[in-house]
């Protein structure tokens, strides 16, 4: 399988700042993500990592700077945001499946309404991705009948059904029971191996170490480290990152 539509540089932040009133959430962010890269963003809570991720599909607007996705300026008001979002899948911490729709309907909605696929075509795609995330038997269930891990896998299938260039994951395993984290990470790992461009905010250091091409460490709205995971986990350069890692691994 091949993802992407020929852009080498899928995401680019250039001197991006974001303020919530007086609070400076993102400080002078510079970050470029290439096609097929898996970038994991880590950092203490409140550091701005989710905000950074949510700026990429304009769930949050930036205050100044330049932010491009597939070389289209996402910060520009003239940009057709719905058109751009077709290419950016998003997976949320709390899944946000549509509770009034079956699993299949959840996955089929956007391909039909946004891409204009026929019902038959959308269903075929939906079943394909359900198979891929390992729960084809749940096609006609409602989200409330699924476990958290299954719901999150449906959410991933829902994102993939739009054939996006990029997948964003906002703490995809943080709301899951420990025994369900593995099944979601496995799906993400398989996706990474197929060459999907991924930006993942997570606390799963094992995933970061094993799957990521790069680890971004962010604190107080600033990118403090942008490193190869092996190096980062062996020897973080920044004092703040050392402290963060020691707190995580000493428990």
């Amino acid at each position: 399988m091949h993802f992407g539509k020929g852009f080498d540089r899928v995401i680019r932040f250039q001197n991006v700042n974001k303020h919530y009133g007086d609070f400076h959430v993102l400080k002078d962010i510079n970050l470029t993500i290439e096609k097929g890269e898996v970038v994991v963003i880590i950092g203490p809570s409140g550091s701005g990592k989710s905000t950074l991720l949510r700026c990429i599909n304009r769930l949050e607007t930036i205050s100044d700077g330049l932010l491009e996705v597939n070389e289209v300026e996402i910060s520009n008001k003239k940009t057709d945001i719905n058109d751009l979002r077709k290419n950016i899948g998003m997976v949320f911490q709390h899944f946000y499946l549509y509770p009034h729709k079956t699993v299949l309907q959840n996955i089929m909605l956007a391909p039909m309404k946004v891409l204009g696929k026929s019902e038959e075509e959308a269903k075929k795609t939906a079943l394909y991705y359900l198979e891929k995330v390992g729960i084809p038997d749940k096609a006609n269930s409602f989200p409330s009948q699924l476990s958290g891990g299954q719901q999150q896998r449906v959410a991933i299938a829902r994102g993939l059904a739009m054939s996006p260039d990029i997948m964003l994951f906002d703490e995809p395993t943080s709301a899951l029971d420990p025994e369900m984290i593995g099944e979601v990470l496995d799906v993400m790992k398989a996706l990474a191996q197929e060459g999907m461009s991924m930006v993942v905010v997570t606390h799963e250091m094992g995933f970061a170490r094993e799957v990521a091409d790069r680890v971004i460490f962010i604190d107080k709205g600033q990118i403090l480290e942008d490193a190869n995971p092996a190096e980062f986990f062996r020897e973080p350069k920044e004092e703040r990152a050392k402290l963060f890692l020691s707190r995580i691994f000493n428990h």
């Binding site: 719905n82 979002r85 946000y96 909605l109 946004v114």
Partner: peptide, 13 residues
Amino acid sequence: HKGQMEAGRSSGL
């Protein structure tokens, strides 16, 4: 929940 709006919008609707 406002996440429902975010999920819909982020899928391009």
